[in-house]
Amino acid sequence: MDMHSRPPKLMDRVKATMRVKRYSPRTEKTYCYWIRFFIRFHGVRHPLSMGAPEVKVFLEYLAMERHVAAATQNQALNALVFLYRHILEQPLGDIGEFSRAKRPRRLPVVLSHEQVTQVLSHLSGPMRLMGSLMYGSGLRLLETCRLRVQDIDFERQIVTVRAGKGAKDRTTLLPAICIPCLQQQISTAQRQLDCRLAHGREPVTLPYALGRKYPNAGTSLAWQWLFPASRPCFDDTGKVVLHHIHPSAVQKAVKHAMRAAALPRPGSCHTLRHSFATQLLSQGTDIRTVQELLGHKSLETTQIYTHVLGKGFAGVRSPLG
């Protein structure tokens, strides 16, 4: 049989379908991991020869033997539901009752404004600006890394988050105190762009097929990363490109700053976003507004912060005084 006439392999079909449906690269990698794990768990049987009973056994194994978190078990389930519904076109239907991983109720770690200021004082340069945006704008780590020059609107003092979690766009607050540093960061981006153009170096990575639709987009300041990587990398096609800073570099810097600040409960990058939400709510900001600024799909997700606030929320006081 001619190699070109062979049907595509299962995992190739999974990847192709996820890209057509605009799933994020991270989700693609995660779903592929769980699908491969499921197939290996059942002795490398093809998923078409299996169904809901085998999925149930696998999920119970994850909870009872591997002791995975509830979110991890749900992630594996979502991957398999996607496989059967969109690739094999044989929806699983009702899996029935199965042992679920326990979901402990944990409140997020939040910091006071003074504690955040202390953490930021242990950061410098772009890392300090990124930390300031996670706290001052409520951005997720990856959303901060993916900011482009055009996403900053100084006149209206807003930040536009493009294709955030759930592939949604939203706008959020731009702290006035960040404006001078952002202007400096954009000036740096302009100088770096001029240098790359002068030496015919690597283009900036662009979303989807934008580079084909607008061939000059990669050479415009608007599309440059606000926080570029320190060196170029290879894209999926093997071409050398300039990507944004890797999230792990920011995580490492923020963790060091948290330790240096000697906090009673050190957190992470997401702690800065949590602190943004609690600060707004403690000031009396409407919870729906906070939901929109954070980009939460469900109000229930935002409501977790009301439990963190305790007596300070909306001026409520204990009857005991």
Results as ranks from 00 to 15, higher is better:
D2V: 12
D2Y: 15
D2L: 11
M3V: 14
P7V: 13
D12G: 12
D12V: 08
R13D: 05
V14W: 10
K15D: 09
M18T: 10
C32G: 07
I35N: 00
I35A: 00
F37I: 07
I39W: 03
I39N: 00
I39S: 00
F41D: 00
L48D: 09
A52N: 07
V55R: 02
V57M: 01
L62K: 03
V68A: 00
T72E: 01
Q75A: 04
L80Y: 15
L80A: 02
D94V: 09
I95C: 00
F98S: 00
P108K: 03
P108W: 04
V109C: 07
L111F: 14
V119T: 12
S124N: 08
M127N: 06
M130P: 13
G131E: 06
G136V: 15
L139F: 14
R140S: 03
L142C: 03
L142F: 08
E143P: 15
R146C: 10
V149I: 14
Q150T: 06
Q150S: 05
K165N: 02
K165E: 05
K165R: 06
A167I: 10
R170E: 08
Q185P: 13
I186T: 02
I186K: 00
T188C: 02
T188E: 00
Q190Y: 09
Q192H: 15
Q192I: 13
E202N: 14
E202A: 15
V204N: 01
A209V: 00
G211I: 13
P215W: 09
N216M: 12
Q224G: 07
A229S: 13
P232V: 05
D235M: 08
H246G: 05
H256T: 13
A260Y: 07
L263A: 07
L272G: 03
H274D: 06
Q279K: 05
L281P: 13
S282G: 05
D286N: 10
R288C: 11
R288D: 09
S298P: 09
T301F: 15
Y305E: 03
T306E: 08
H307T: 12
G310S: 08
G312N: 07
F313V: 12
L320I: 15
